[in-house]
Simulated assay, not measured.
Amino acid sequence: MNDTDRAALTTYLNSIEDRSRSCIGYPTNTDFDFESIFPLFKHPLNNVGDPMVGSTYHLTSTSLELEVLAFFADLFGAKHGEWWGYITNGGSEGNLYGLYLTRELYPKAMVYYSEATHYSVQKNIHLLNMPSIVIRSQANGEIDYEDLDHMIRMHRHLPAIVLANIGTTMTEAIDDLSGIKDTLKKNAVTNHYIHCDGALAGSYAAFMEPRPAFDFSDGADSIAISGHKFLGSPMPCGIVLVKKRHRDRIARAVSYIGSMDTTISGSRNGHTPVFFMVYDKKAWP
């Protein structure tokens, strides 16, 4: 690095330090210290392929990834041996994965999501070319169950895919899975799928009192959370967890990597699982 580049980098670092002191208004947590894992940045960690299968590339952190996934699977009420997941690049990818699975499961389904849903959902629906209906929101940002009931009743001949918000962007409202399930049952829609976008509140909803109905034990088929919001990873990342039988519908073997093609991106950031693990400070020197 020459003197000009070094000066430019110093100027940039100083500006970031200055901005960090007054960075408010975005749902990001900056209270972290990852100095203990700086040596890992010398290595090209790449969690390519399915984390539960392994691959021909050995500079990975999939062993840590599996520990992180198992922790959240247990927290979210997933049954042992019946879940699957991976660490994503963020909540938007988790939402895309949930929708991708539903399209493969129910190609002719209708997607229902509230007007308070994160913008990534509408974008992902467009990318996947899926029909959808926007449902009204209540004043607090929670989905309007009467409007949901009305719209599902009009399209009850189609499988239903419902996007539930576990913490909306502006009001942190949580859609009640019990109410959603009651609506599906009331309209005799037996073919349905519920994806929970928990990017904002999913990581701590299990600890709330009273505990909201939002996870696998409440009827979710997949859940996505963010790692750089409440949890505070310095790199954008997230987790998506799904019922394993849904993931099995899209899995295919790829000889080049010696693994299964089950994720959105082939190569995945191998450093982000380490950030999740570092929250247990006792596990590291």
Rank of each mutant, 00 (worst) to 15 (best):
F207C: 10
L128S: 15
I161C: 10
K281I: 10
Y112G: 12
L59D: 11
M154Q: 15
L231E: 06
T102E: 11
R153F: 14
D182S: 06
Y57F: 15
H150V: 11
G202N: 01
T28L: 01
F72P: 03
T169A: 09
G202A: 01
H192T: 01
I250Y: 04
D221P: 00
A201T: 07
D218R: 11
S132T: 06
L184S: 09
M52P: 02
H150R: 07
D182W: 01
S120K: 05
H58S: 05
A199E: 13
S178V: 07
F76M: 14
E146W: 02
K42G: 14
C196P: 15
M151D: 08
Q138P: 11
T262G: 00
K243G: 11
L105S: 09
D197V: 04
D218L: 08
M130P: 09
T10P: 00
K79V: 00
N89C: 08
L158Q: 13
Y106L: 15
M170F: 10
V53L: 01
Q122H: 03
A199P: 07
N29K: 06
D147G: 08
G238A: 07
H271M: 03
W84Q: 04
F72R: 02
N47M: 03
K185M: 07
L231M: 13
C23W: 02
G98L: 05
Y12G: 11
M1A: 08
S20R: 07
P44D: 11
N14T: 07
A206I: 10
V111R: 10
E146Y: 04
Y113H: 14
R21M: 15
Y57I: 10
H118M: 08
D74E: 05
P44A: 12
Y100K: 03
